[in-house]
Computed example of a mutant assay.
Amino acid sequence: MVLGKGTWLLVGALVVAWMVLSGPSAPSGALDARSVPAKPVRDVVPNRVMTWNLCNPCKTGNDDRAAEIATFAPQVIGLQEACVGDVEKIRDYLENLHGLVYHVEYGAVLQSWGRCGGAPWNPGGYGEAILSAAPMTDVVTEEYPDGGSEDRGYMEVTTTVGGRPVRVFNTHLAERRQEAVRADQVGVLAKEVARHDRAIVIGDFNAVPDAYELTKMWRLATDADPHCRPGAATTCEPTTDWQSKFDYVFLRGYVPARHRVHPNQVSDHHVLYADVNPA
């Protein structure tokens, strides 16, 4: 049977109407073809390490978080207050919108429906995450014996920074006004860090450089800011909206080439990154 011109026009109109009403065939929130970058893969800065507390709960889009990370394109990113579902979306946005491809490992220390959503019987994982352009091996996730007012822990992986294999740690210590708890947590963490001649320790320590609970970390490593150390805290750039330095990139077996603290509208913690070289 041959269809007339009027019939074909009607069929075409119905197809267009169906496409408009049904939307894209990809799952809700997925990126359409126009979102794919012109260049499929973009290079990261091979010796750049970044730490960032995402702020949770905060009304922030994961596309905005990904854009902040993509601005600096680090080789390794340590995230705190991270929901597994959010990190999955961030990684997708980094690849599909910005051409940056990362491996990801999670260090969830609790299941939190209030912070991360999910089904009441299957709430989202909450804690730390590490994204690395190079593969990661020997992943370890540990919860501190005493988290303080909320479960806290650290994770560690082996990856590559500056062309060398390195053990990378990511942690989030107990909240403010819990100094004794943080001191015990640093003791646990420092014991593990001391086992490695080459290590990078990143995270939100919830303590200023002069705080006594950081003493064991300062004995093992130096800050990515060579002017920031105990006794010289006034030279340390603040990393939070309340003008305190709580975020660190501690280096062991590496030396800093440069660092930057970047305030942003996405979180109450600033982005902190460091370019490093093997010592």
Rank of each mutant, 00 (worst) to 15 (best):
T171I: 03
T240P: 00
C228S: 07
E142W: 04
E192S: 12
Q178A: 04
G203K: 02
V140K: 09
T215Q: 14
M217H: 00
D225E: 03
L214V: 00
D247R: 02
A194F: 08
P238S: 07
G162E: 09
T159Y: 01
D151Y: 06
K245F: 00
A232D: 12
E143V: 15
A199S: 03
W218L: 14
W218C: 14
V193C: 05
P238M: 07
Y248F: 14
R198G: 07
T171Q: 09
H196A: 09
E150Q: 12
G203L: 00
T141N: 09
L189A: 10
A199V: 15
V157N: 02
R167E: 02
R198S: 13
G148S: 01
Y154S: 07
D225T: 09
D225A: 12
T240E: 04
F250V: 09
A174T: 13
L251T: 07
V139S: 14
E143S: 09
G187S: 05
R229Y: 08
L214R: 05
A233F: 01
T158N: 03
S149W: 11
P238Y: 06
A233W: 06
G162K: 03
Y154G: 04
R164I: 13
A199C: 03
L220I: 07
E213C: 12
S149K: 11
S244G: 04
W218A: 14
G187R: 02
D210E: 06
D184S: 13
N170P: 05
D151G: 11
A224R: 02
E156Q: 15
K191C: 04
D225C: 00
G147E: 04
A199L: 08
Q185H: 03
D225N: 14
D225K: 04
A211P: 07
H172N: 10
V208I: 04
D197T: 06
T171F: 06
Y154H: 11
P165F: 05
G253S: 01
T160E: 09
K245R: 14
M155H: 02
E179G: 11
P238A: 07
P238R: 07
A174E: 04
A183K: 13
A183E: 14
G162Q: 12
E237S: 06
T239H: 05
V140L: 12
V208C: 03
R198E: 05
V249A: 08
V181H: 07
D210H: 05
P209A: 10
A233Y: 01
R177V: 10
P165V: 02
T239N: 03
Y144V: 12
R182G: 06
G148E: 06
L251F: 10
K191Q: 08
K245L: 08
V186P: 00
V139A: 14
D210W: 06
H227F: 10
R177P: 00
F205G: 07
A174N: 04
P209V: 12
D151L: 14
P230F: 01
G153A: 08
D151I: 11
R167W: 05
V161E: 14
H172D: 13
W218Q: 09
R152G: 03
A194G: 11
D146S: 14
H172R: 11
P238N: 10
T235F: 12
T239P: 02
L189V: 01
D184I: 08
Q178E: 15
D151P: 11
A224S: 08
F169L: 08
F169A: 09
E143W: 08
D197M: 01
F246M: 13
G231K: 08
T222N: 11
